[in-house]
């Protein structure tokens, strides 16, 4: 087992997070550096995710490393019934690090235990996706010039949205205040509210978006998916209530920035895109630098 693996955001403490973020800032200044020259990184995507895979692969290639791997389970040896254990053993004997996405929860933790080389979790089912969380943090730091004592408003699917859960964990090091805005069906689960109380993190809850984020520094929007609703009428109602429009931003703070893990569906009206407070496209681009910092830490340190 390699203890350098990054499976869950809770594998990193405050210092680890800050060191990744400052390293990412260096890569943003100069993303083309041959520090992974001669290294091989395997990207094993048992579940397709073009966005995440291309971001990781670009990160490695811009650092001079090479890529092996597959982009969906149908073309992998697991389709022939090979166990994850055996696939990881085989790939671990070729590559210097493994980036893995899997549809089963806990797959990355298990892979990190049986792999001879470090593993980065690029998403394990509904569980964890730590590079997303780190790029969220990087985006927050870059736009607010600090991480401490920020007012963060989380909106949309707070029940199943793994990005918001990980964000709470990661921000807990930096004295945040949260507002959870979600429809009744998709409310923040109790375990995260218990976590906030235990860590003295103040939070409020609401099911109303409009006019409810005027004191926020960060408005973190998430996708409200149709599949989550038993009642489709309820989905149609919620979909419209949780759509951010440009006119709703008129009273917001000047430093407010809007984040979204992308891809979006209807949560953010396209008329927001031109507003300087819209930051979701730059946020996605920040993923490249953060992933360069992660790969550098895993392979070179």
């Amino acid at each position: 087992m390699s203890n350098k693996s990054l499976v869950s955001i809770t594998d990193y403490d405050r210092d680890d997070i800050l060191s990744i973020l400052s390293s990412a800032a260096e890569f943003e200044k100069n993303p083309n550096r041959k520090i992974l020259d001669g290294k091989v990184v395997a990207t094993l995507f048992f579940e397709p995710s073009t966005r995440t895979r291309l971001s990781f692969e670009t990160a490695v290639i811009r650092l001079g490393g090479s890529i092996i791997g597959f982009s969906d389970a149908a073309t992998s040896s697991s389709a022939k019934g090979e166990t994850l254990h055996d696939t990881i053993q085989m790939v671990g004997s070729y590559a210097d690090a493994i980036v893995m996405r899997h549809y089963l929860e806990g797959a990355a933790r298990y892979a990190s235990e049986v792999s001879p080389v470090p593993v980065v979790n690029a998403g394990d089912g509904a569980n964890q996706h730590p590079s997303q969380t780190l790029l969220d943090l990087y985006s927050i730091l870059k736009t607010q010039k600090k991480l401490e004592r920020l007012n963060i408003c989380l909106v949309g699917d707070l029940k199943y949205g793994r990005t918001v859960h990980s964000l709470i964990m990661a921000m807990s090091h930096f004295d945040p205040t949260f507002k959870f805005i979600a429809p009744e069906e998709l409310k923040m689960p109790d375990e995260y509210k218990v976590f906030c109380r235990k860590n003295n993190i103040p939070f409020t809850e609401s099911d109303e978006l409009a006019g409810n984020f005027d004191d926020a520094d960060i408005l973190y929007m998430t996708r409200v998916q149709k599949e989550r609703f038993r009642d489709l009428m309820e989905y149609e109602r919620v979909k419209n209530v949780y759509t951010l429009r440009n006119d709703m931003l008129s009273e917001s703070k000047p430093n407010l920035r809007i984040l979204h893990p992308l891809p979006r569906v209807t949560e953010i009206n396209p008329d927001v895109d031109a507003n300087e407070k819209a930051y979701y496209f730059q946020q996605a681009q920040n993923g490249l630098y953060v992933r360069q910092a992660i790969m550098n830490r895993l392979i070179n340190k």
């Binding site: 166990t83 994850l84 254990h85 899997h102 549809y103 089963l104 929860e105 797959a107 298990y110």
Partner: peptide, 21 residues
């Protein structure tokens, strides 16, 4: 109890940590 957990699909021993609240 999670049907999507790796331990219910692959030969992986379950490990649970006990959390005291």
């Amino acid at each position: 109890p999670n049907p999507s957990c790796i331990t219910n699909h692959q030969p992986v021993a379950t490990v649970f940590s006990v959390q005291n609240g």
